[in-house]
């Protein structure tokens, strides 16, 4: 396999690691040296050629190739079998409506949640249950980190240059988790979106605000009321460019999930209940309308472990959630970048 990227040669592994810091190639944490052999293994696991294009950021004259994504995946600590998920995440992030330039240059320091659905979760060990937001799980930690390193190193979102976050935030190191599809009969997110149950799918949600909703009420309606009340505190303004696709992700934690199940609530019923309450006219400074075009723009994801009665809101930046099917080398029926 011939790579376009030139080698940098060092006497020792320690010198190579220090050079990665000095050259500005890391997120501030140590990285795994990206050798030709490791990058080739990554590309092989993805069934990709080095020059395959995963997407572009036109405002920055950036083209992201499979080779550069693979280098950054190695540096992030990914195993080769994670690479198809990394590729799907990068492709999803580079879709036009994911608004890469805006979400990675913003003063607000938006993060990017990588939400994984389908069989690949169990195949590679993407944690969906207890502590799934991390740290603690290699697949979650390194897949999210690989996307962030691509954003930094390939897409030029370097602090002080085209990353202009005033504070930035820790979710930007890595934020990847799976939906706990096995916890109930709820329709998984990717199936709600029109994919097949056996598809593996990555969803990227830009995250402007990450809000915990902790509520110990036993009644389902009261839990849902707490969710929409918290969401309305944040609000969601209309953005003409993003149009009707802008969505709120609601990650329903286990305790809330169990109460909702016991009382017969499906995802679809939850969406129908929340939507009119979230989209009612603004009633004051801390009671803001969410401009969500349809109940389907409230994306319900089951995740997390038992214990605290908590769910989480992932409020977007100026982007819509984007999705990509995970494509494996032996998946002859698949075509990269397809949507349902």
């Amino acid at each position: 396999m011939t790579l376009a990227t030139p080698n940098h040669v060092f006497e020792t592994a320690d010198e190579a690691l220090e050079a990665c810091f000095e050259l500005g190639w890391t997120d501030g944490l140590p990285v795994v040296p990206a050798t030709v052999e490791a990058v080739a293994a990554m590309l092989a696991a993805g069934g990709l050629n080095p020059d395959d294009v995963l997407g572009t950021v036109p405002t920055r004259n950036v083209t992201v190739t499979a080779e550069k994504a693979a280098i950054n995946a190695v540096m992030a600590g990914c195993l080769p079998e994670y690479f198809p998920v990394v590729v799907a995440a990068v492709r999803a992030h580079l879709q036009v409506k994911a608004n890469s330039h805006s979400t990675t240059a913003t003063l607000a320091g938006a993060a990017h949640a990588v939400i994984v659905n389908g069989p690949v979760r169990q195949l590679i060990g993407v944690e969906c249950g207890q502590a799934c937001f991390g740290p603690g799980f290699r697949a979650n930690a390194t897949i999210g980190r690989a996307l962030r390193l691509v954003i930094r190193n390939v897409c030029r979102a370097v602090p002080g240059e085209l990353d202009r976050a005033s504070f930035s935030w820790p979710l930007r190191y890595s934020f990847c988790f799976g939906e706990n599809e096995e916890a109930s009969e709820w329709t998984p997110l990717h199936v709600q979106l029109g994919y097949q149950q056996n598809d593996s799918v990555v969803t990227i949600q830009s995250v402007m605000r990450f809000i915990a909703v902790t509520d110990f009420e036993p009644e389902a309606e009261k839990i849902l009321d707490a969710i929409w009340e918290q969401a309305r505190h944040a609000g969601l303004q209309r953005d003409e460019w993003a149009g009707d696709g802008r969505s709120l992700v609601v990650v329903i934690g286990t305790e809330h999930h169990l109460r909702l199940l016991d009382q017969g609530w499906t995802k679809e019923r939850i969406q129908q209940y929340l939507w009119p309450k979230m989209t009612a006219d603004t009633g004051g400074k801390y009671d803001n309308k969410l401009h969500l075009a349809d109940p389907a723009n409230i994306m319900i994801v089951a995740a997390g472990g038992p214990g605290i009665a908590q769910s989480w809101l992932l409020v977007p930046h100026l982007a819509i959630p984007t999705h990509e099917r995970v494509v494996f080398p032996d998946d002859e029926a698949s075509a990269a970048g397809t949507t349902p």
């Binding site: 010198e15 190639w25 550069k68 190193n153």
Partner: peptide, 17 residues
Amino acid sequence: MTVAILDPTNGSIDSAS
């Protein structure tokens, strides 16, 4: 034994002219 690593970037931001 030397270690050869690959550049993860798209090149210098100053490369256009």
